[in-house]
Design a protein around this nucleic acid. Structure first.
Ligand SMILES: [Mn+2]
Ligand SMILES: [Mn+2]
Ligand SMILES: [Mn+2]
Ligand SMILES: [Mn+2]
Lengths: 230, 230
DNA sequence: GAAGTTTATAAGGTTGTCCTAATAATATAG
DNA sequence: CTATATTATTAGGACAACCTTATAAACTTC
C-alpha cells in the first residue's frame, strides 16, 4: 500500500480519462490520444501499461474506463489542479483563462502535504474558478446534477455552473465574451441543420457552436427536467 | 532568443553548479554527480551536452563553471525555488526543514508569469526561509558578504545569516537544535585534530562538525575581518 | 619520476515515452 | 451483407537520462 509516485505522463492519462469519462463512460483511445496530443499507437501502448497496473480497463473497440484504484489517483491529480487554479486566480490575480495551463504543470509537482496545506489556506473551496468541483483528499469526486447547454430546450433558463472539460482554446474564447460560471443564461433557439445555438448570456446574445455548447454546463431553473422525453 | 524550456534534469544540473560554485569557483564533476545522486559518467555526459548548448564551461580535470547564459538560467530556477519556500513556510505553515524538498519539485513546474505574480503576492522577499538571497527576475544573484562559521576565530560573535547549500539531512539536523538564521552565535573554540567546533547558538552550546560548520554562514560583528591574514 | 589517486572516456545496456508506416480486426451503415 | 470507417497491432526507430564495467589520461605526492 505504498504511495508509488506516478510520472507526469501517467498522471495526465489518468486525469484525462477521468475528465472525458464524464460525457460517455467508455473513453475511446482515439479521444484520449487527441486530447493528450499523442499518436493513437502511443496511447494504446500506455493504456496497456496502465491496464497491467490495474489502473484502468479496456474493452477493445469500445474504449477505456478507470478502475476504482485508477479513479482515485486521477481525482488526486484533479484535486491538486483545481486547488492551484483557485490559488492562482484568487491570490495571485492571474487570468481566469490562463491558470488552467499553469496548474497543469504544478499538479504533477505537488506533494500531498503541500496540497492539504493549500486546501486549508484556501479554506477548502468547493470548486475551481471554472466551476468544476474539487475532489476530496482521498480521491472522491462530488456528484453534480447540472446539464450541458446543448441539452437545454428553447425557452429554458439557468445559471452557468461550469466549463468542462477545460482547454486553453475554449477558455480563451469564453473569456473573450465574458461567458463564465454564475452568469444567467437563456436558451433562445437553435438554428436548423445542426446550426449554432442562440443563447442569451448576461446581456448579450451569442451564437455558440454545438461543440462549445457541450462544454458549458448549466443549473437549470427548477422545472421538471425534460431530457428523458427524447 | 526564444525561451526554450529546459528539462527538470537540466535545470537541476544548472542549479547545482550554481550552488556549489559559491564555495569554489570550479565545481568538480564528481561533486556535481554526488549531489545529484547520479554516476560520474552520467554527469560527464550531461556536462558535455550543456557545454554544447553554451550553458557551462569545462576545464578537464579541474571542474565546470556556468557561462553568463547558464548562470542566468540557474538563477531563475533558484528564484522560483526560494519564492516557493517563502510561500510554503509563511502562508501554508509547512515546516522550515521540509519545504526545501517540496520547492525542489515546484521549481520546475512554474511558469514565469506565476513566479512573478507570486513574488508580488509575497511582497518581493529578499531571502528564503533559510536565509539565502532571492535572485532578481532576470537572473542576477545579489551579492552578500557573510562568512562560513568555519572561518570564524575563537571569540568571534555574529548572527547566523543563512544555511548553504541546503539539503534535507542538514536542515533536519539543524531544525532539531534550533539552529537557524537570525540566531546569535559565539564561536568558543575548536577541538584539536580537526575536531568539532564549539559554538554557542542562542542559549545552547553545540559541538558542530566541520562539514556542518561550512554550511552555516554568519554575519560577523563589525570588526576588521581577518580572513586574509591566513 | 614512479605510485597512487582522481578524473575522463569508451563500450554496451536499460527504461520510459514518444514517433511513422503498414497491416489486421472489428464495427457500422447503406 | 458488403463497403467504409474506426480501432488495434506489429515492426522498426528515436531520444533523453540513466546505469555498470573497463581503460586511459592527468594530476599529486613522496
Ligand atoms: Mn498536467
Ligand atoms: Mn478549472
Ligand atoms: Mn528541483
Ligand atoms: Mn531555502
Amino acid at each position: 500500500m505504498k504511495n508509488e509516485a506516478f510520472s507526469e505522463s501517467i498522471e495526465m492519462y489518468l486525469k484525462t480519462v477521468s475528465e472525458l469519462a464524464d460525457s460517455e463512460d467508455l473513453v475511446p483511445i482515439s479521444a484520449l490520444a487527441e486530447r493528450l496530443g499523442v499518436s493513437t499507437v502511443s496511447a494504446t501502448e500506455m493504456v496497456h501499461r496502465l491496464k497491467k497496473q490495474d489502473l484502468l480497463e479496456h474493452l477493445p473497440y469500445k474504449g477505456v474506463s478507470l478502475t476504482v484504484h485508477g479513479g482515485r489517483r486521477a481525482c488526486r491529480v484533479i484535486r491538486r489542479h483545481r486547488l492551484w487554479e483557485r490559488f492562482l486566480v484568487d491570490y495571485l490575480g492571474l487570468p481566469w483563462e490562463k491558470v488552467h495551463d499553469y496548474a497543469c504543470r504544478l499538479e504533477h509537482a505537488t506533494d500531498t502535504a503541500v496540497t492539504e496545506a493549500l486546501a486549508i489556506f484556501l479554506d477548502n473551496p468547493r470548486t475551481c474558478p471554472h466551476g468544476n468541483p474539487i475532489p476530496s483528499p482521498d480521491g472522491e469526486m462530488p456528484d453534480i446534477s447540472d446539464i450541458p447547454l446543448i441539452q437545454m430546450q428553447p425557452g429554458d433558463r439557468g445559471i452557468i455552473s461550469r466549463i468542462h472539460p477545460e482547454s486553453i482554446l475554449l477558455l480563451d474564447y469564453l473569456a473573450g465574451r465574458d461567458i463564465r460560471p454564475d452568469q444567467p443564461v437563456e436558451f433562445e433557439e437553435i438554428a436548423p441543420f445542426n446550426g449554432p445555438l442562440m443563447v442569451k448570456i448576461g446581456e448579450q446574445t451569442h451564437a455558440l457552436g454545438q461543440e462549445i455548447a457541450a462544454h458549458i454546463f448549466v443549473n437549470c431553473e427548477d422545472e421538471v427536467r425534460n431530457d428523458e422525453i427524447a
